[in-house]
Design a protein around this nucleic acid. Structure first.
Length: 480
RNA sequence: GGCCCUUUAGUCUAUCGGUCAGGACACAAGACUCUCAAUCUUGGGAGACGGGUUCGAUUCCCGUAAGGGCCA
């Protein structure tokens, strides 16, 4: 194995850049830097349905914002590219075939209906469900011939009997019974790889020496080890970091917590605060210091100092830390930072046309756009309720919850999509468009009068919009 | 439901068998102050439970419980 440490993060571009990605990224970054290694960004966009270039760009932006510069990646290149999985499908297909030839994998011709029947039978017998291995026993020659003839198929891993031992750097040996694992699909019928195949092939081909990822992957590590073995490759070292949590201890999610890096940037959290705070979760410095810089973390990071209980992401403490860091700056530096924050926000300039016709003095700009600049405007829950005439509190809550759902479902956050979502929701829910709009307006701006709603929402961004609607919903929940 | 992981205060954590169980956020009280914030002082609050091992367990082992994750 090469002795240069190579670490990677491999986010899927299916939404806003996530604090969890930054968290895992930070650890990978620290380990790579501490060992004079390389930190690589790979984009796992094999889910064509959900992946967007918009989201990919946002991930680049978010990760750069927290200060995690990568040495190799789709946008900066590198010797092991391409770094975008959608551009590597031939590689996966070739590798899947290689396993079929060696017998470690086999084509499966079962139709979705047959698979469903198998599952039904298993369920009625109260057996563990999973592929029953019907196509396992098709002789290789016949199987190859049927593939060549173009019969629809997937390629499955032939999972052997026995147990697989995962050597996790943080937990030691973890034993998992292979009986627990299905004959995994490696290549789907459309020729696209599944996560497991692509991940292992890429990690190997990109020379990854240390896989540091979230704990949710620990149970699939045996599959990965089987693949390494089937290919005859040495596996990397594994470390599974604890999962960030919501206040209720469930895995952190946007339903219960703002998770977008762009959201935190937008409310004015400093990037150094964000990385500092993330470095406090699940890891401690030898002298217990809590305020420190990235280079100190790189120097002091150690797997020995990781605690495995999943830490709750506490926005209160994040903001306290941000205050500490703001107060520690000299006034001139802070002035510069404030200016950068207010004027370097990518879309701030587009606020001007909206504000312009509502301004009589330059200072009015601040008033007209304050809802955009502030972390959370004050919203009067009773006033917000007043926008919906004749609705009970419960009805109002339901409508707001539905609105949140619909807006979360908007694929691309632009003028047309947001407007369509809101208008069709009004129709569906049989609410006057005007009423729905003014509800959203009050929730988002705290005022009955504001610049045009849809433009405002687009500028606020989806995370901020969603967060503010949820905030009002929370306020409503504590209403009588 | 099966498997895996985890378990110190509301939250983040320290402790690598012997500590008055330490620190931070939050909370409360006081001081300072035109107010607020900041700051300082003080305070309450923790080893999930039950068994072992040991002279001695928060710490090691087993069981239970709870939380979480993955697969379905």
């Amino acid at each position: 194995m090469s002795d240069t440490v190579r670490c990677r993060i491999a986010p899927s571009p299916t939404g806003d850049p996530h604090v969890g990605t930054a968290y895992i990224g930070l650890v990978n970054f620290a380990w790579a830097r501490q060992n004079q290694g390389r930190f690589i960004l790979r984009i796992e966009d094999t889910d064509q349905e959900r992946s967007t270039r918009e989201s990919e760009a946002a991930i680049f932006e978010g990760l750069r914002w927290v200060g995690l510069e990568w040495d190799e990646g789709p946008d900066v290149g590198g010797p092991f590219g391409p770094y975008r999985q959608s551009e590597r499908t031939d590689i996966y297909r070739e590798h899947a075939l290689r396993l079929v030839r060696s017998g470690a994998a086999y084509p499966c011709f079962c139709s979705p209906e047959e698979l469903e029947r198998i599952r039904q039978r298993q369920r009625s017998l109260k057996r563990q469900t999973g592929y029953d291995g019907t196509c396992r026993s098709i002789p290789k020659d016949e199987a190859m011939a049927r593939m060549a003839a173009g019969e629809p198929h997937v390629i499955r891993l032939r999972v052997p009997e026995g147990v697989t031992i995962v050597h996790d750097r943080l937990r030691g040996a973890v034993e998992i019974d292979n009986g627990q694992i299905d004959d995994q699909v490696l290549l789907k019928s459309d020729g696209f790889p599944t996560y497991h195949l692509a991940n292992v092939v890429d990690d190997h081909l990109m020379g990854i020496t240390d896989v540091i990822r979230a704990e949710e992957w620990i149970n699939s590590t045996p599959k990965h080890l089987m693949l390494y073995r089937a290919f005859g490759w040495d596996p990397p070292r594994f470390a599974h970091m604890p999962l960030l949590r919501n206040k209720d201890k469930s895995k952190i999610s946007k339903r219960k917590n703002p998770v977008s890096l762009l959201y935190y940037r937008q409310i004015g959290v400093l990037p150094e605060t964000m990385r500092n705070y993330l470095a406090l979760l699940g890891h401690s410095m030898p002298d217990e210091r809590e305020v420190f810089e990235l280079d100190e973390f790189v120097r002091e990071f150690s797997f020995d100092r990781i605690s495995l209980g999943g830490p709750v992401f506490d926005v209160e403490k994040l903001l306290w830390l941000n205050g500490v860091r703001i107060r520690a700056m000299d006034a001139a530096t802070l002035a510069g930072r404030i200016q950068d924050h207010l004027y370097a926000l990518p879309r701030i300039a587009s606020l001007v046309p909206m504000a312009q016709e509502r301004m009589r003095t330059l200072g009015d700009f601040v008033d007209v756009t304050s809802f955009y600049l502030v972390a959370q405007p004050r919203v009067d829950p009773t006033e917000a309720l007043g926008t919906l005439k004749g609705k009970t509190v419960q009805e109002a809550r339901d409508l707001l919850a539905t609105t949140i759902e619909w807006l979360d479902g908007v694929r691309v956050w632009d003028q047309a999509s947001v407007e369509t979502a809101l208008r069709s929701l009004a129709e569906e829910a049989q609410v006057k468009t005007g009423e729905l709009f003014s509800l959203v307006r009050v929730a988002v701006s705290g005022r009955k009068a504001s610049p045009p709603l849809i433009e405002s929402l687009v500028l606020l961004g989806r995370a901020m919009t969603s967060q503010r609607l949820r905030h009002l919903l929370d306020q409503w929940k504590s209403l009588p």
